[in-house]
């Protein structure tokens, strides 16, 4: 039986991934900011086949709360096979440009809280002698663009951090998986017409579970984003600065 801790459990991608794990009969420990919504998701996952579901409400920016949460999650199922870090906010770029405070807050939510969590999770998985640390980054991490560079740079920090952590934990048999989704169709984006670049949370979740099963390192979801982002990374800066992206 798989034992998984999911941080940011109310996000659409996390919820879809949790449903995939529930169908496999996994034991789940859910963490999210809104207690009522986390409890509703827990009840849903029990119905969908999870062997055990526990939950707690926590704000990831409360770094001091991380340690005790991790203790409880480890104790709940006697260890952890998968830790999925899925929380995040889609920063309002324009508002960030006008507010240092908001920018710092976005960086804290999307980058620093992830680093704080990973710092505490790494020794635990290492001591266990295995497991998977899967973290949702973004294709936006691959290059700063003027439309969302606060969000993108936060995710870039996460990606670089995970790359180093992967080297460190690899000898201990711990998989560190960087997940880079593209455009995802969620309730937050209901207003927009969806072109072929958009993917459902179910499709992203299936890609995450398959990447965990295959012990991959970095996945773009869907896979077509890998060549697309390669091209975007290859554009010289002197041209890129004049492109509206």
């Amino acid at each position: 039986m798989t034992r998984a801790l999911i941080i940011g459990a109310t996000s659409a991608i996390a919820e879809a991934t949790a449903r995939g794990l529930a169908r496999r009969g996994a034991a789940l420990y859910l963490v999210g900011r809104n207690a009522q919504r986390v409890a509703a998701i827990a009840a849903d996952l029990r119905t969908r086949g999870a062997s055990q579901v526990e939950q707690e409400a926590m704000d990831v920016n409360d770094f001091a709360a991380h340690e005790a949460m991790l203790d409880r999650a480890m104790r709940a199922a006697g260890g952890l096979d998968i830790v999925l870090i899925a929380h995040g906010t889609l920063s309002d770029q324009q508002a960030c440009e006008e507010s240092v405070q908001l920018t710092m807050h976005e960086l804290s939510t999307n980058a620093l809280s992830v680093v704080a969590l990973c710092t505490r999770i790494a020794p635990r998985l290492s001591a266990q002698g295995g497991g998977t640390l899967a973290v949702i980054s973004s294709v936006a991490a691959d290059r700063g663009r003027r439309s969302n560079y606060v969000y993108g740079s936060a995710k870039a920090l996460v990606s670089a951090y995970l790359s180093g952590l992967r080297q460190r934990l690899s000898p201990a048999g711990v998989q560190v998986l960087t997940i880079k989704p593209g455009f995802v169709d969620t309730p937050m984006t209901a207003a927009f017409a969806k072109g072929p670049l958009w993917a459902s949370p179910q499709r992203i979740a299936a890609g995450i579970l398959s990447a965990i099963d295959k012990r991959r390192d970095v996945v773009y979801l869907p896979g077509f984003w890998r060549p697309v982002m390669w091209i975007i990374r290859m554009i010289p800066e002197r041209i890129f600065k004049r492109v509206a992206l």
Binding site: A12, T186, P187, M188, T189, A190, A191, F192, A193
Partner: peptide
């Protein structure tokens, strides 16, 4: 967002709608 085209199963009725999500 801007309105988007939504059609139903028969593909005879369609038109622009503002779409709201509920989660």
């Amino acid at each position: 967002g801007p309105p988007r085209i939504v059609s139903s199963w028969g593909n005879v009725a369609r038109g622009e709608h503002h779409v709201y999500g509920f989660r």
